[in-house]
Computed example of a mutant assay.
Amino acid sequence: MPTPKRQSKQAISRIGSTKRRRSSIERVQIDRALTEPVIVIPSPVFEKKNAEQLVFDKPTAIPRLPVSWYCPAIDRAAPPKRSIVRLLTREEEVVLFHQYNFARMKLQSLQDKISKSKAPKDTDIDALIRWHEVSLECRDHIVECNLALVLAMAKRSWATGEYADLVAEGNVALLRAIDRFNCELGFKFSTYACRALTTAFNRFGRKQMKHKDNVPFEYDPGREPIYTNHDDGIVSDEYVQAIREALRSEDAQLTEVEKDVLRYRFGLFAGQNPPKLTLAKAGTMLGISKERVRQVQIRALLKIRQVLELSLPLDLLAG
């Protein structure tokens, strides 16, 4: 099993099911790993018996490139040198995305297992931290190789506003594209990412134009802003139906535990006027602690938000 650089010595030590005290750093890592929404892009390689060996035991390592040149706050006139920036080849992309999604698959399985357990084993907690760190290492590697693509697309965008804000919007879109990219389809990631970045920049530009329409003057402390939108807070049945469809479909990849938590906490799958239970009561119904319910709820809502951001119009998401 791979060992990421950021992994602590306590997290990689193998122990039995005996409980031990966790450091504050480990507790933060565990909470992040349990609450992070995980969407896995499957691959036929993952179904083989020696899947982990096939995915991680590669003859040649993919080098990490320096990112000292990266400074989005400065609108550079010239692009960075090719000697320090290059896109991944198709073969390198397949390797990294297989590793990333395999680690995410393991992480998702452990999240579900630990969420169902009243007293999770230390070995499961250690594996959770380990696979979470492996997935972060793979994602960071892919991001570092595509930072120049974000800067190049930001320069071509028609959207107005601060250049650094536009790049930040592109970086968020890049992370989402990494989660959704399917390397089994035969396309390069840069092709998929360019479309995702264009969509994000267009959304950013429309948001900036909407802001200018709402506040059509320079800032004046002695004057209240004039808002022209009088339909705030009105959500049509179309949007409500879209939210319900996202919950009932497989797009969000909600586990059974996540669905049960949402049902008890928000009554999403019940009849009219369903009861909304507290964290403690929902935990009692599911046989887990209220802290575990909180972690599962955060993870499930983030998954749903990611799905909705891909399907709902800008006006609803921007508020």
Rank of each mutant, 00 (worst) to 15 (best):
P275V: 05
V261N: 01
K276A: 11
L279D: 15
M285D: 03
L286P: 10
L268M: 06
R263L: 10
L268G: 04
R294I: 03
T284L: 04
Q297S: 09
R292T: 10
G287I: 04
G283I: 03
P275Q: 11
T278L: 13
A270R: 00
E256Q: 14
E256F: 06
Q297N: 03
R292V: 00
G283P: 03
Q295P: 04
K290D: 14
P275K: 09
E258R: 03
T255N: 11
F269R: 01
S289A: 02
R294W: 02
G271P: 14
A280I: 12
K281W: 11
I298A: 07
Q295G: 05
V293I: 06
R263A: 07
K281T: 14
K259P: 06
R265D: 07
P275F: 15
Q295H: 03
A270D: 01
I288Y: 10
A270Y: 15
P274D: 09
I288C: 01
L254Y: 03
V296A: 15
L286R: 00
R265F: 02
L268T: 10
Q295D: 07
K290P: 06
V296H: 05
V293F: 09
G287W: 00
R263N: 12
F269M: 14
T255I: 03
D260G: 12
T284K: 15
Y264R: 11
L262Y: 01
L262H: 03
I288N: 04
K259A: 09
K276T: 12
V261M: 00
R263G: 15
